[in-house]
Structures are given as structure tokens and as C-alpha cells.
């Protein structure tokens, strides 16, 4: 089985630990991380808004280099936590698109919830994670970082139609 683990800042240890429970010796594990997440483009845009400064000092390039280094470091920390041979892949571009595309070659994608973790419900997925869960062309294992909130966090059902009169 080919298992992919999508690493996101903050939530990745839960995804790695869950994958460790599902893998067997025959599994092939790929760690996925998206570098930067558009930050270099935004910084390059902000610099472009400063007129007259020329191109030489554009911080987007150094930020993209930082993003590559940071991505490699996160992948290596996750590999150390997993404690078995695995493939490390640092992806570029929009996170939700890049991960969905990478999932095409997988049998199982492990994803950690990354939204409002204080209650059960759709908001426990951030927009990018939501996109991946909805579009991944493979099975998805969705895990809670830490302990899942109790059923009591679900709001009561809306008031339905009145009970029929039994008299």
C-alpha cells in the first residue's frame, strides 16, 4: 500500500502518528509538504508596490529560498518521528491543488484536521484541507490532532415541524 502523509504546520505530528498505526512492512510511505504557501508571491507583490526601488532587492527570492529550507527541515523532523524509511516530497504551488494532484498516485492519504478543533463539525477543516478531502482521488484518513471534542460540542438539531396531534 502506498501511504501519503500531508504535513501541515502544527498538525503534522498527529498525521504521522496515525499513519504509523496503519502502515505495515510492505507499505511505501511518502511525506508531503507544500513550501511557502504563496508567501513569496505576496511579499514580491508588496515589494512591487514600492515604486522606484529597482528589482535587485526583491525579497521574494530570499523568502522562496527560506521556504525551501524550512520545508526540508519539517520533512526531516517528520521522518524522524515516523522512524522508518520513507520518501520526502516538498511541493510547490497552491497547497490544496498540489496535494490533491500528489494523492493521485496514492492508495491512502493521511490528513490532519486543522480548523476549529474545539468542536465537532465542518469548521474543523480549514479551506485547503476541505478542498483536499473533497477532491482527493484516493482513500483519506482524517485525524484529530489531540483528543477529539465530545459529542456535546454538536449544536442541538434545529426545531423541526410540530409533532402531529395524536388526540
Amino acid at each position: 500500500m502506498r501511504i501519503g502523509i500531508w504535513l501541515t504546520e502544527g498538525a503534522w505530528p498527529a498525521a504521522v502518528d496515525a499513519a504509523a498505526e496503519w502502515q505495515d512492512d510492505a507499505s511505501e510511505v511518502v511525506l508531503l509538504h507544500v513550501a511557502g504557501g504563496g508567501a513569496a508571491e505576496v511579499v514580491g507583490g508588496a515589494y512591487g508596490g514600492l515604486w522606484g526601488r529597482g528589482r535587485r532587492r526583491d525579497p521574494a527570492a530570499s523568502l522562496a529560498a527560506e521556504a525551501g529550507t524550512a520545508s526540508t527541515e519539517l520533512l526531516e523532523r517528520a521522518a524522524a518521528r515516523l522512524g522508518r524509511p520513507c520518501q520526502l516530497r516538498s511541493l510547490g504551488g497552491r497547497p490544496e491543488r498540489a496535494v490533491t494532484a500528489a494523492a493521485d498516485a496514492l492508495d491512502l492519504l493521511v490528513v490532519a484536521r486543522d480548523g476549529d478543533l474545539s468542536r465537532l463539525g465542518p469548521r474543523s477543516l480549514g479551506p485547503e484541507t476541505r478542498f483536499v478531502v473533497d477532491h482527493a482521488p484516493c482513500r483519506v484518513l482524517l485525524v484529530w490532532p489531540g483528543t477529539a471534542p465530545g459529542l456535546g460540542s454538536i449544536p442541538p438539531p434545529p426545531a423541526g415541524p410540530p409533532e402531529p396531534d395524536r388526540r
Binding site: 504546520e9 505576496v42 514600492l50 525579497p59 527560506e66 529550507t69 524550512a70 519539517l74
Partner: peptide, 25 residues
Amino acid sequence: TVVLLTPVVFATASRVGVRPRPHVY
């Protein structure tokens, strides 16, 4: 701030392990 601080903020957020995007923005 744009030229010298943003790359540092990005690197710091990544090193701490929090999502860099809000901090870079």
C-alpha cells in the same frame, strides 16, 4: 520591513513550527 524583515519573519514562523502565512501577511 518589506525587504529585510519579511524573510526573517517567514523563517522564524517556520522554525517555530507555526503557519507562516498570517505572520508574513
